[in-house]
Design a protein around this nucleic acid. Structure first.
Lengths: 186, 186
DNA sequence: CGCGACGTTGATTTGCCTCAACGATTGTGG
DNA sequence: CCACAATCGTTGAGGCAAATCAACGTCGCG
């Protein structure tokens, strides 16, 4: 899900079209970008900061599904691509700056810049792939292994976001993450 | 992922086109329909029997991601839609009969029967939705709750497939599933 | 018939959670 | 800008869910 262009090489004209479709936005830390149940009307290219996508269970506990630091595209892909209510919510973990692409504008862009079809296909594919990894690692790996996967997947991110969000991502309590970390490095 | 038509109503002519694109196939019990690493070149409408999609971890243990009993479409959607190597494998849990739709034929079908675009969109959307449910239920529910979810999702299937495959699906050992079942009904 | 895979059951172990207490860090209102 | 509150990360004690190991009866299949 990295990179604005994302394996789609655009000529000057196409790049201008895309550029003018994007809206620069500031997202304050902890503010909600997408509320669960609302329709995901935009996708967001993160230029600075970090967003997260998560769901809230019956008990009120939040579970982070992925993080979107710099140069990732953030969205509830399922909701965006079908314009139906989102299962997940999206919020900012840091003060963030994004380029927003609205669905209505995106549809027109698909006509003027057909290469965007490919761009979107890859976005969906990566979303799928990400889910697959989460499912299988939750089914077959220990907390320690999942923590190391997180470090590999998001280099440097552990210095920027709170332990409790990392714990939520790997599916354990912050208390237990603290013990895992202690065991791993002193 | 149910139903051949799947929310797409076709007229006589369109239905004929689709019909002639499908290939009837017998799949023997336990035979591999798709090998992990191969490209998923077809999707399969299950007319009789039951397929499963699963992955094999480093330790050699298999983890079932979903089942495809009658009237479901089976595929590694990610691999099929991008024609890249599959992460998962697909095999038959019972003697099965399917209608096979090859990617090359599918592409042509999209031209002659544009409604198939919608069909495929829904297929992908359902795949996404399924993954989301698995992730969140693995993160926030107990084995007992996940077992009941399985029963609701696949009515009657527990009578047809082995306990170990159900256990693999809900992410526990067959031994523990046996104890959960004992507790639930005598 | 006999072998191997399967499901069950009990005993034991382990991974992770809950609860509670404590400093450290962050956020907030005056 | 400070004072206080709230949240956070750490640590220890204790508990529970699920895994592992092992033994045994059953079933399907060659």
């Amino acid at each position: 899900m990295r990179n604005l262009a994302m394996h789609v090489s655009l000529d000057k004209d196409e790049a201008d079209h895309v550029q003018s479709a994007l809206q620069y936005k500031i997202i304050r830390k902890n503010s909600l970008v997408l509320k669960s149940g609302d329709i995901c009307r935009s996708i967001y290219f993160v230029n600075k900061g970090c967003l997260r996508i998560f769901n809230t269970d019956d008990k009120g506990d939040e579970h982070n599904i992925s993080f979107f630091p710099e140069f990732w595209w953030a969205a509830d892909i399922s909701s965006f691509s079908t314009q139906t209510p989102a299962f997940y919510a999206i919020s900012a973990l840091e003060h963030s700056e994004v380029f927003q692409l609205d669905y209505t504008v995106f549809e027109k862009l698909l006509v003027t810049v057909p290469k965007m079809e490919r761009f979107f296909r890859i976005l969906v594919q990566n979303g799928f792939h990400l889910y697959q990894l989460r499912i299988t690692s939750n089914l077959s790996k220990t907390a320690e292994e999942r923590y190391e996967e997180f470090q590999k997947q998001y280099p440097g991110l552990e210095q920027r976001i709170s332990q409790k969000h990392i714990a939520s991502y790997i599916g354990i309590t912050p208390v237990f993450l603290s013990k895992v970390r202690k065991k791993l490095f002193g």
